[in-house]
């Protein structure tokens, strides 16, 4: 594929994000923009397991929450810098992802999904009972001064989130276009046939879970400093799970651009709705959009695009274009 085009776009994206921090006068754009970028990472990461391999992870909130609390712990215990917090959170997420991957040995479909909810509640319960990080009532966090060249912390977080979007998308894109992606699709379509066609299904699933977990958890880490506060109920909010899933499915799971579009569309709408109406309504919109798309446009925005703009697609790398 057009490899150079992608990296040029990525460089332009990060430059634009940085440029915005230099020229924009109002901080609000960074508060809202950070959330949109955050959901881009979450949806992209979720899709590596849920979209490519077909395992519906309801436990996005477990990874995200664990990322938040890894950052809290690192900050409280060692005063670790933000980038180290993110990296360690990512590694913790990869380990948790690996564990979730082992669940796939015995569980498929809805059983796997329910197991991931179970896992998130259990992890949340442990955090609630862990006094060092504030227990159920949460913990207040103080932002250190921003690192040069930034003069405002929120602007720095915004650029970090933009870089994470590029990293997550680059990895998702690599996975999708490499032999890993083909193997995961085989797993999603028929795991037994995949295994008997030489696909090391368990290894691929463990890999997908670990990569997905890395980014889901890493994205939790800066959220602690974004909010300057962490409590289990909001860090482990199930809304993260439904958002990541809905954004991927609404965008379309077959291609890395799907979750990105879905997140851009839904997170921006949510930012508008939260400000203009209420945060309940934005969850309602999310749920309604999810159900509408799942029922009416099963291949998401990508599917709609293919149906209306490429009527006779027999492109071998493409997905379905059922008549």
């Amino acid at each position: 594929m057009r490899g150079n085009g992608f990296w040029l776009a990525a460089a332009a994206f990060i430059s634009a994000a940085y440029g915005l921090t230099v020229f924009a006068t109002n901080d609000y754009v960074f508060f809202a923009g950070y959330i949109i970028l955050q959901f881009m990472v979450l949806a992209t990461a979720w899709n590596i397991l849920g979209g490519y391999a077909g395992y519906v992870n309801f436990g996005t909130n477990a990874f995200f929450g664990l990322g938040v609390y890894t950052a809290v712990f690192m900050a409280k215990a060692f005063g670790a810098p933000l980038l180290l917090q993110i990296l360690v959170a990512g590694l913790v997420g990869a380990v948790l992802g690996f564990a979730v991957g082992l669940l796939t040995l015995r569980m498929h479909g809805i059983f796997f999904s329910i197991a991931t909810i179970a896992m998130s509640i259990i992890i949340e319960t442990f955090i609630i009972n862990w006094k060092f990080v504030g227990g159920a009532s949460g913990v207040q966090l103080l932002r250190p001064p921003p690192t040069a060249p930034f003069d405002s912390y929120i602007r720095m977080l915004f650029v970090i989130a933009a870089v994470m979007v590029v990293l997550a998308v680059a990895v998702a894109r690599y996975v999708q276009n490499s032999w890993i992606g083909r193997g995961l699709r085989a797993v999603r379509d028929d795991e037994i046939a995949a295994e008997c066609t030489g696909v090391p299904t368990l290894q691929l699933k463990l890999l997908a879970c670990s990569i997905s977990g890395f980014f889901l958890c890493a994205m939790g880490a800066p959220a602690a400093m974004y909010l300057q506060y962490a409590d289990p109920a909001s860090a482990f909010n199930l809304n993260y799970s439904v958002s990541a899933l809905a954004m991927s499915l609404i965008g379309g799971t077959a291609h890395w651009i799907g979750p990105l579009l879905g997140a851009l569309l839904l997170a921006s709408t949510q930012q508008l709705l939260t400000v203009t109406i209420s945060s309940e309504v934005n969850v309602l919109v999310l749920g309604l959009m999810l159900v509408l798309f799942v029922v009416g446009a099963p291949d998401g925005l990508i599917g709609l695009y293919r149906r209306f703009f490429k009527p006779k697609s027999s492109d071998p790398s493409g997905g379905s274009s059922a008549p």
């Binding site: 085989a186 995949a194 066609t197 997905g319």
Partner: peptide, 29 residues
């Protein structure tokens, strides 16, 4: 050792070409 199945198990989302590429990618590594 290769096999076919009593009830066919194609990779449904893939074209015929891609079905075979899975085998080439993974089995004939």
């Amino acid at each position: 050792i290769a096999r076919s199945f009593q009830i066919p198990r194609p990779f449904k989302s893939m074209t015929v070409l891609e079905n075979l590429l899975v085998a080439i990618d993974f089995a004939a590594v």
